[in-house]
Each structure stands twice: as C-alpha cells, then as structure tokens.
C-alpha cells in the first residue's frame, strides 16, 4: 500500500488529507486518484509538487518514478507567502 497525502489548496479541493492506494508508478497513482475523485483532474495532480519519501520526483524518474509498498507520496500545490 502507498500512503498518499495532500497539502495546500489541492487538499481543500479534494477534501481528504490522506488515503491508501496501490500503484507501481506515480503515473498510475495519478490515474487512480483521478478515478476516485473525478473533480480532480490528472493535469491538476501533475501540477503539484510531488515527493516520494522526502524526494522530489523531479530528482527521481518524474512521473515514471517507481513506488513500493510502504512508500509515502506527498502532493503539494503551489506555495508562496511568508
């Protein structure tokens, strides 16, 4: 199982803070989240900053980054302001 957590305005739009899913890659995970929450498009998910176990996917294999049981994936929407 993959632990998926949402932050930023994305979380307010989804109305969930976390869920558990099975997926082997990030792109598969995006499709599964979209199937569960129709109002959140894949494009919207792709425009989040995505971390797998504290690593930004852009430093891994981006949307083809592989997932394994027990991984934690964070989706964080655009941020600024302090």
């Amino acid at each position: 199982m993959i632990l998926v957590r949402f932050f930023g305005t994305l979380r307010l739009s989804i109305g969930e803070s976390r869920l558990e899913m099975e997926a082997e890659r990030i792109d598969q995970l995006l499709v599964k989240i979209n199937q569960k929450y129709n109002k959140i498009g894949i494009k919207q998910l792709k425009n989040a900053v995505i971390f797998i176990n504290n690593q930004n996917i852009n430093k891994l294999e981006r949307f083809k980054s592989r997932l394994k049981d027990g991984d934690e994936v964070l989706f964080i929407s655009a941020m600024g302001g302090g």
Partner: peptide
Amino acid sequence: SLTGNQLPRLGTAGLLSSMNAHK
C-alpha cells in the same frame, strides 16, 4: 495562483507543510 488562490485560501500558514517537506 499564489495571490489569487493559495494566499486567500490558506493564508501564510499554508506554507508550513511545504517547508516541512523541504526540511
């Protein structure tokens, strides 16, 4: 997206999660 969405909806406190992710 920052001044029209994130800041109105979450305020400056919205940054905390991202800061945590970035250590």
